[in-house]
Computed example of a mutant assay.
Amino acid sequence: MAGSKFIPDRGLTTRMVLTMSLLGIVYVAFIILLILVGMPWYLVVLVIGGFALVQYVSSDKIAMYSMGAREVTPQQAPELHAVVDRLCAMADMPKPKVAVADTDVPNAFATGHNEKNAVVCVTTGILRRLEPVELEAVLAHELSHVAHRDVMVMTIAGFLGIVAGFLTQMGLRFAAFGGGGRSNNGGPAPAVIALGVVLISAIVWALSFLLTRVLSRYRELSADRAAAYLTGRPSSLGSALTKITGDMARIPSRDLRQVEPFNAFFFTPAFSKSGFSMSQLIATHPPVEQRLAQLADISRRLGQGA
Rank of each mutant, 00 (worst) to 15 (best):
Ala99Trp: 07
Ala99Lys: 06
Ala99His: 10
Ala99Phe: 06
Ala99Val: 07
Ala99Cys: 12
Val100Ser: 13
Val100Gly: 12
Ala101Pro: 11
Ala101Trp: 01
Ala101Ser: 15
Asp102Pro: 00
Asp102Thr: 09
Asp102Met: 01
Asp102Ile: 00
Asp102Trp: 01
Thr103Pro: 10
Asp104Phe: 00
Asp104Pro: 01
Asp104Thr: 08
Asp104Val: 05
Asp104Ile: 04
Val105Ile: 14
Val105Cys: 14
Pro106Gln: 10
Pro106Asn: 10
Pro106Glu: 11
Pro106Met: 07
Asn107Pro: 09
Asn107His: 04
Asn107Thr: 03
Asn107Asp: 13
Asn107Glu: 11
Ala108Leu: 04
Ala108Phe: 09
Ala108His: 08
Ala108Arg: 01
Ala108Asn: 12
Phe109Lys: 02
Phe109Arg: 05
Phe109Gln: 10
Ala110Met: 02
Ala110Leu: 02
Ala110His: 02
Ala110Glu: 06
Ala110Arg: 01
Thr111Asp: 12
Thr111Ser: 14
Thr111Gln: 06
Gly112Tyr: 03
Gly112Trp: 04
Gly112Thr: 10
His113Leu: 10
His113Glu: 04
His113Pro: 00
His113Val: 14
Asn114Lys: 02
Asn114Gly: 13
Lys116Asn: 13
Asn117Pro: 00
Asn117Phe: 01
Asn117Asp: 15
Asn117Thr: 07
Asn117Tyr: 01
Ala118Trp: 06
Ala118Met: 08
Ala118Thr: 07
Val119Phe: 05
Val119Cys: 12
Val119Thr: 14
Val119Lys: 02
Val120Glu: 14
Cys121Leu: 04
Cys121Ala: 15
Val122Gln: 06
Val122Phe: 04
Val122Asn: 09
Val122Cys: 08
Val122Tyr: 03
Thr123Glu: 13
Thr123Gln: 08
Thr123Asn: 12
Thr123Ala: 09
Thr123Gly: 12
Thr124Pro: 13
Thr124Gly: 14
Gly125Pro: 09
Ile126Glu: 10
Ile126Lys: 05
Ile126Ala: 10
Leu127Cys: 09
Leu127Lys: 10
Leu127Ser: 11
Leu127Gly: 13
Arg128Tyr: 00
Arg128Met: 06
Arg128Ala: 15
Arg129Asp: 15
Arg129Ile: 11
Leu130Tyr: 04
Leu130Cys: 15
Leu130Pro: 06
Glu131Arg: 13
Pro132Glu: 11
Pro132Asn: 11
Pro132Lys: 01
Val133Pro: 05
Val133Gly: 01
Glu134Lys: 02
Glu134Met: 06
Glu134Phe: 04
Glu134Trp: 03
Leu135His: 04
Leu135Arg: 00
Glu136Ala: 11
Glu136Arg: 03
Glu136Gln: 11
Glu136Leu: 01
Ala137Leu: 08
Ala137Cys: 10
Val138Lys: 14
Val138Trp: 11
Val138Tyr: 13
Val138Leu: 14
Leu139Trp: 07
Leu139Pro: 11
Leu139Ser: 09
